[in-house]
Structure formats: structure tokens, C-alpha cells
Write a protein that binds this DNA or RNA. Structure first.
Length: 815
RNA sequence: GGGCGAGUGGCGGAAUUGGUAUACGCGGCGGACUUAAAAUCCGCUGGUCUUAACAACCUUGUGGGUUCAAGUCCCACCUCGCCCACCA
């Protein structure tokens, strides 16, 4: 009898699949399409570990199952090659990024292939291929044409270690998302994408996609849409007006002071000489505070009086203007009207600096404005609010806004927390921004027919840290002719954020080798949008937000006819190291699939383990012992098939075998539809246990065994593709199991003749009885009373009530 | 402080609309096979409980509630994980 040897069968079938191109997709309108995509990986120097592999295993099971269900499946793979990880790896090892990417993608591809993933490799590309980034640059020009790319000087987050600016999304708690070092502020002229123009649609369209609530709420939170009003307060003795954003204009009669952020420009003009020194001291102090310090010193409020006063536009009250760093320069107008009677932070500030507190509700008590959503707030009535006294909260809000609008000092406004996407990077390894600076004509786009602006191969590409990209030191790259006047001009030397490249790659997969345009509209229309997007939750507010924005820009341009790129999003749970810690190279606790394959477990066992370890969307610690269980499970199926093949032909039927397989077909089909991978595998294990018992009753070699084993192998195929293909072949089937039709089940085999019914007395289980299927209450009651144990529990008691759930349960209530 | 999610055996976990809690796997114990071991196959394995059987009682983070019946529904609380955090 042949032994199960993954080392022998797995490479053989991998080769066979590649040769026969069975996973290559084409636009066949006869079959329903399904586009299944996993985030394309960064081919870093470190090999993939079993945590990464889980992501691809989930996608592969979905893809293989869909194919067997007769769908036209697109399941591509490529490389997110530009960006810091690849460049830092190249710097560390001293080899060029071009070469490092070539080597690492080779390694990654080999790892993925060894896992038996069913990718259409004919569509492979890397975002650093000139044939690809040519179109990334083309999209930059498109955004520029549509007024969505602009250049502006402002204070930006700067990572002193990676020596580049970062987008807001890429700063986490004051630290660089890549290297973890504390970021600084630096004034630089930078390119931005105007994602704020799309804030509203990005927030609203989340209602229509099938994503987890937590990712949706993270995006909504990041976009931070809030409805309110912008109100102008004249500054006393000046022509200046102080503009504030508020979501609580109904509390305007409770304003007892104003607060400007220390960076607010009005501080240059409205502060009287008497207070100038102390204001400047305060500004200096807060400038020196890092973002992290500001967060650590969290609750203690600081600030100084500016000596200036504002006038309340509704009642003419004179209001002192303060500056304090609890007001953020970058949000709203960088200034607030402080209402200590309603806002916790203003209240704290007022207490500390002994400023008056006015309550603007009849309750005359402090109400945390943050609790606006609490229903009780709706019952509050305005007080201390002049003509608006007695109005309920909603009406008061409305009337006050009307009055402000009438007086020309207020308007309703929607404010967003999200900032424009800073996309310039002062790093080498990225797509060059296709712009030219001409002394005469200013900033001129590179003509489309001159794309791509090729990234030159450099010997030295370390970031300088002077705020300029390494490309600035390459005269052959920099010096060029102005496309408009033909005179001498300089190329933009910053490169694009790697997230620009990943903002459209999913569309390129539909038409990856097009040299005339980014993609053919019909091909994209055929495959898009992505039906199942599978990946980790770490992309929640970066990639997923950017890609959604680009999609909407393309929709507006008429290139595509949809606005949401990812119909459903699935976030897999993380695989932790056996010690429960995150796997990382630095901790030395990673487990790589290659080691396990070498040890003889094989890719199939790893795939089973990845899914059986727990629900796919929950994290789980890797179990070394568990691998043995996965391997044994496959081996048991292997051995069953070998025994069957070895047995001589016999005749006979088996109802029990049929029942077992049909039950399992239903269970696995249902579980796969609900992504219940772990329970689907459990069902296959149970089936295997049943088959081992049944082989002592039904001789192997009986035709029904071939039927049952063949279906078993088909059910196993999405999870363990190699062993399934091998056994399918051994069972003398033509063609690949992976292109075979998913088995169906016959309801008649699912119906049992008799059922076990639980019998409860006063809610406690007192026994079980076996009754014919669909017995009525009278018959079951009789059977129950005949049961010795149940009878003992009923003895001497009066039955008050009987509840019967057909085929399940009988419950007596007794006194 | 806000948002999202989760607490079930020694461990990972299972449990349709409330209806036999602990499926399946790991680990452990026992047996078969073997000169022996590994491998394989078979059986047992929540607690009170210490040899076996029977019985009883207890058990899904804690405390209440609804119900004939609660891991599942309701209320309050505790713990852990993740995300956002002075966003006016």
C-alpha cells in the first residue's frame, strides 16, 4: 500500500497545474464571474510566515470552491513593490531595490506556489514595473487635470529616521507607522491629493458595502463628518472677524470666552502690546512640545489671555479671547467659542482660569455636550438665551441658526476630520511624480506621451534628510526641457507614496499587460468590482480609504461605472506565535511554511491547520501539536482510498454510507457558504471517523465506496488541493478534481427513520427516548412514560403542562 | 474618555429560530499490534470524585431577571483584546 508522502505528490501536482494553466481566467460570459482578491504583498526580505499564509489560504479556499460551483473565477496575485520596506531592505543589504525586488518576488512566488494557491500567474505584475507605474503617473496627471492634485507649503509630519514626510494616516500616536520613531513638524512644499472633496461620498457609500462594522466605523471615525455651523465673532476695536466652527450653536448664549490654537494666524494681529510677550512665550512653549508630549500631559489645561475681546453676534456680549493648545490648529477654523456650561473641556478650562460659567438649559446643570446623542438631551429646554428661552433643543438650534444667517454672521457647515492626502515622499523607491518646474511657465505636467517618467537606477539612493529626494542629486534626471516653452526646466524629484500604486492595482489585474491604456474598460467592467477582498485589518484607514477615493475619481471621469471597488471585505484574524505573542522576525518566533513542508507535513496539512485552528476572522496562537492532527486527518483519508483500491471488486449497497456522505455534502456546502471553514473541516473529520467504522461493515471494493470516497475527495479539494487531486486521479477520474462539479446531496438520505428525543421534567433532562421520525405528542408521551428513569421522576407528581417540540424534545411541568 | 469585539474542559474551539452544552482536534489515560520503540488502529477523558459502576448535584466571566427550557434574550457589573483619542 502506498504511503501518504506530501513531498512527492505536492510538487508534482503544482507542476501539472502550471503546465495545464487550469487557474487562468478569461472573460467567459457564460459563467457568473467572481473576483477574489487578497491584498498584494510587499515582497520584503523576510519570507512569509504562517500568519501571512492564512490570508491566502482563505482566499484560495473561496476561489477553489467557487470554481467547482461553476463560476468564472479571477484570482490574481502581484507585488506591492514600491515603498519603504523594499527600499530599507535594499539599503541594509547593499543591493539595489530593483534587484532586491526581483529576488524577493521570486522567493514569495515560490512560497505561494509551494502552498498550492490557485493564482492566475499570467496576470502577475509588480507596482515598480515601468509598464505599471507609467499608468500610476497617468492617474496622477488625471487627478491634476481634475484639480485634485495640488502643491502647497505647510507644516507636515516628518520622520527623522525614514527622512520623509508622511500622510496624516501614516502617523500613529505621534509615531511613524513604518519605523515607530517620533515624528517632527517640518515646513515643506508638498503634493497633495484632495481626498477631502470626496469625504462626504467616502462616508456615505460605506452604507452600501458588505464590510465588518468595525472597519466601517474606523473609516467613519477617520473621515469624522460632523454637521454644525460656522459663526463669526467680530473682534473688538478691529476689523478682524474671528471665525469658529461649532456643532452646538444652540449654546451660543453660554459663550464666556474664545480660544485660539497657538498657531492661529489672528494672534499676529489682534493681540495688544500689553499681552504680546506672554502670548509669544506661550506659542513658543507649545511649539516645543512634541505631539507625544501633548498627549501625555493630556488633561492638564494650559493657556493665556490675549488681551483681546470678541463680540457675541447675538447679544453683543464682550468675550475675552484666550489661546490654548487644547484647541487644534488643523481642525475646523482652529478657534472655538467656549461654552463651559455645556462642554467638559471648556468647563475644565474655565475652572482652572476662573472664568464664568453660564448654563443655557432650564436644568441649569452641566451637560456634557458629547452626550448629544443621548435621548435625554432632546428633552432639554433653552434658558439664559434671550428670545429663545423655553424652546426645545432642536427648535432652538434651528431658530438660532436662522437668526445668525439673517445677520450674516453664521452659516450651516459640514466639517471633516480627514485632511488631504499628502503624497510626496523624499525617497528614491517610488513612482516619480510626473511634473516639471519651469521658471517661465511654472508647474507643467509631463505630456502623457512622455510617460513613464522612468526612475533611474542609482548606486546611491539613501535619503539625505535635507527635505529633498535623492533624485535631486541626479542632474540627468532633474534637467529637462519645459514641455510648453522648450526652455530649461527641472523635474519634480519627489516620488509618490506607495499607497498611490496600490490604489488601482485591483483594476489592472483585469487587463494587466495593456500598453495603450491603464486598462480596457470592458475587461474591467467584466470582472469588477472585487467580490471578495481578503486581508488584515491594518489597512482599515489607509489603503482602503485611498483606493476608494481613486475609484470614485475614475467613476467621475467615466472610466468605470462603479464607485466602490470592494463589494465585500473580509478581515482574517491574526496568527500568533505559539507563545501567544505577535510573530516577528525580531522576536525570533516566526514559523514559516517552508520549514513545515521540509519536515514532511506538506502544504495541505498547513492549509488545514490554518483554517481548523479557529474561526477565520479570529486570531489564534499557532499550535505545533495541532499540525500532527491535521496531517493524521489527511493520512486517514489517504489510507482509506488505498484500502479501497487494493480491495477486489464486490457487489452490494450501503444506506449508511450514503447517509454519511450526503449529510456531509450538505454540512460542508452550508459551512462554506457561511465561511465556516473550521466546522467544515470538523465535518470532514467526522465523516472520516464514520467511514472507518463503516468499513468493518461494508466491504471495501463495493461500488458505493468509490462514489463515497470520490465525493469525500471533492469536498476536501478546496482545503487540501494536492492530496485531493492525487486521490481523484487514483480513483480513476478523468481531469482535475478542481474543475469537477461540486457534489450535491439528496434530501432523501438526510431523513432519518427514528430520532432521539430529549425528555425534561421541570426543565431538567431526565432521559432520552428513541421514537419514529415525526411521532405525535401522544405517542412520544407514552414512550416517555414507559421509560423507567423518566417514570421514576414523574411518580407521585401531577403533570401540569407538556411541551412537545417535534423530533427534538418533550418537556413535562409537574407539581 | 469614546467605538468595536470577545469571555465555554488541561488547551484551540463547537452549539440553526432559546430546545440533549462541551461536536471536531490537541493533550492525557488505557488497550491491540510489535522482541521493543515509533507509526497505525480501538476505547475512555468537564467538576464534586480517590478503584469501578450507578445515582445525585454543580458547570458556558460575576450577580440578578424573563421562560416549561438560557452559552443563546433582558438588566447591572467584572476582565481581556483591538481601534480612535482634547476633533469643538
Amino acid at each position: 500500500m502506498k504511503r501518504y508522502n506530501p513531498k512527492e505528490i505536492e510538487p508534482r501536482w503544482q507542476q501539472q497545474w502550471a503546465d495545464s494553466k487550469i487557474y487562468e481566467a478569461s472573460e467567459d460570459p457564460a459563467k457568473p464571474k467572481r473576483y477574489i482578491l487578497e491584498y498584494f504583498p510587499y515582497p520584503s526580505g523576510a519570507a512569509m510566515h504562517v500568519g501571512h499564509v492564512r490570508n491566502y489560504t482563505i482566499g484560495d479556499v473561496v476561489a477553489r470552491h467557487a470554481r467547482m460551483q461553476g463560476m468564472n473565477v479571477l484570482h490574481p496575485m502581484g507585488w506591492d513593490a514600491f515603498g519603504l520596506p523594499a527600499e530599507n531592505y535594499a539599503i541594509k543589504t547593499g543591493i539595489s531595490p530593483q534587484q532586491a525586488i526581483a529576488e524577493n518576488t521570486g522567493k514569495f512566488k515560490q512560497q505561494l506556489t509551494r502552498m498550492g494557491f490557485s493564482y492566475d500567474w499570467s496576470r502577475e505584475f509588480a507596482s515598480s514595473d515601468p509598464e505599471y507605474y507609467r499608468w500610476t503617473q497617468w492617474f496622477f496627471l488625471l487627478l491634476h487635470k481634475r484639480g485634485l492634485a495640488y502643491r502647497q507649503e505647510s507644516l507636515q509630519w516628518w520622520c527623522p529616521v525614514d527622512k520623509t514626510v508622511l500622510a496624516n494616516e501614516q502617523v500613529e500616536a505621534g509615531r511613524c507607522w513604518r519605523c515607530g520613531s517620533e515624528v517632527e513638524k517640518k515646513a515643506l512644499k508638498q503634493w497633495f491629493f484632495k481626498i477631502t472633496d470626496y469625504a462626504d461620498r467616502l462616508a456615505k457609500d460605506l452604507d452600501d458595502v458588505d464590510w465588518s462594522e468595525s472597519i466601517k466605523s474606523m473609516q467613519r471615525n477617520w473621515i469624522g463628518r460632523s454637521e454644525g455651523a460656522e459663526v463669526e465673532f467680530p473682534v473688538e476695536g478691529s476689523n478682524e472677524k474671528l471665525r469658529v466652527f461649532t456643532t452646538a450653536h444652540d449654546t451660543i448664549f453660554g459663550v464666556t470666552f474664545m480660544v485660539l490654537a497657538p498657531e492661529h494666524p489672528l494672534l499676529h494681529t489682534i493681540v495688544p502690546e500689553t499681552h504680546r510677550q506672554q502670548v509669544e512665550n506661550y506659542q513658543q512653549k507649545s511649539r516645543n512640545k512634541s505631539d507625544i508630549e501633548r498627549q501625555e500631559t493630556n488633561r492638564e489645561k494650559t493657556g493665556v489671555f490675549t488681551g483681546a475681546y470678541a463680540i457675541n453676534p447675538l447679544d453683543g456680549a464682550k468675550i475675552p479671547i484666550w489661546t490654548a493648545d487644547y484647541v487644534l490648529a488643523g481642525y475646523g477654523t482652529g478657534a472655538i467659542m467656549a461654552v463651559p456650561g455645556e462642554d467638559e473641556r471648556d468647563y475644565e478650562f474655565a475652572k482652572k482660569f476662573d472664568l464664568p460659567v453660564i448654563f443655557t438649559t432650564e436644568q441649569q446643570e452641566f451637560v456634557d455636550y458629547q452626550s448629544e446623542l443621548k435621548p435625554n438631551r432632546k428633552t432639554y429646554k433653552l434658558a439664559n438665551s434671550g428670545e429663545f428661552d423655553g424652546l426645545d433643543f432642536e427648535t432652538g438650534r434651528q431658530k438660532i441658526l436662522e437668526k445668525l444667517e439673517g445677520a450674516g454672521s453664521g452659516k450651516s457647515v459640514i466639517n471633516y476630520r480627514i485632511r488631504d492626502w499628502l503624497i510626496s515622499r523624499q525617497r528614491y523607491w517610488g513612482a516619480p511624480i510626473p511634473m516639471i518646474h519651469c521658471l517661465k511657465d511654472g508647474i507643467v505636467p509631463v505630456p502623457e506621451d512622455q510617460l513613464p517618467v522612468v526612475l533611474p537606477e542609482l548606486k546611491s539612493f539613501e535619503p539625505s534628510g535635507d527635505g529633498r529626494s535623492p533624485l535631486a542629486n541626479v542632474p540627468e534626471f532633474v534637467n529637462t526641457a519645459c514641455p510648453q516653452c522648450g526652455g530649461p526646466a527641472e523635474r519634480e524629484t519627489d516620488t509618490m507614496d506607495g499607497f498611490a500604486c496600490s490604489s488601482w492595482y485591483f483594476l489592472r489585474f483585469a487587463d494587466p499587460h495593456n500598453t495603450e491604456q491603464p486598462f480596457d474598460a470592458d475587461k474591467v467592467k467584466f470582472w469588477s468590482p472585487v467580490d471578495d477582498y481578503i486581508g488584515g485589518a491594518e489597512h482599515a484607514v489607509m489603503h482602503l480609504l485611498y483606493a476608494r477615493m481613486w475609484t470614485k475619481v475614475m467613476q467621475d471621469e467615466g472610466l468605470i461605472d462603479f464607485g466602490e471597488p470592494f463589494k465585500s471585505l473580509r478581515n482574517q484574524g491574526m496568527i500568533l506565535a505559539p507563545d501567544g505573542q505577535k510573530m516577528s522576525k525580531s522576536k525570533g518566533n516566526t514559523i514559516q511554511p517552508d520549514e513545515l513542508i521540509e519536515q514532511g507535513y506538506g502544504a495541505d496539512s498547513i492549509r488545514i491547520m490554518e483554517l481548523f485552528i479557529g474561526p477565520w476572522n479570529q486570531s489564534a496562537a499557532w499550535s505545533v501539536e495541532g499540525m500532527g492532527g491535521s496531517y493524521r486527518f489527511l493520512q486517514r483519508i489517504w489510507n482509506l482510498v488505498q484500502e479501497h483500491i487494493a480491495a477486489g471488486a464486490a457487489t452490494g449497497e450501503s444506506e449508511a454510507l450514503q447517509r454519511a456522505i450526503h449529510r456531509t455534502v450538505k454540512k460542508v456546502s452550508d459551512d462554506l457558504a457561511a465561511m465556516g471553514f473550521n466546522t467544515a473541516i470538523a465535518a470532514l473529520m467526522e465523516l472520516t471517523n464514520d467511514l472507518y467504522k463503516l468499513k468493518t461493515e461494508v466491504p471495501m471494493g463495493v461500488p458505493v465506496w468509490k462514489d463515497v470516497l470520490s465525493k469525500t475527495v471533492q469536498l476536501l479539494a478546496p482545503f487540501a488541493p494536492h492530496i485531493s487531486e492525487e486521490l481523484w486521479n487514483q480513483l480513476a477520474h478523468e481531469g482535475s478534481v478542481h474543475t469537477s462539479e461540486w457534489p450535491s446531496y439528496d434530501e432523501s438520505y438526510l431523513v432519518e427513520d427514528s430520532v432521539t428525543i430529549a425528555v425534561q421534567v421541570n426543565g431538567k433532562l431526565r432521559g432520552t427516548i428513541t421514537a419514529p421520525m415525526d411521532s405525535d405528542e401522544v405517542a412520544v408521551t407514552e414512550l416517555a412514560k414507559a421509560d423507567e428513569k423518566i417514570a421514576a421522576n414523574l411518580a407521585g407528581k401531577q403533570i401540569v403542562k407538556t411541551i412537545y417540540v417535534p423530533n427534538k424534545l418533550l418537556s413535562f411541568v409537574v407539581k
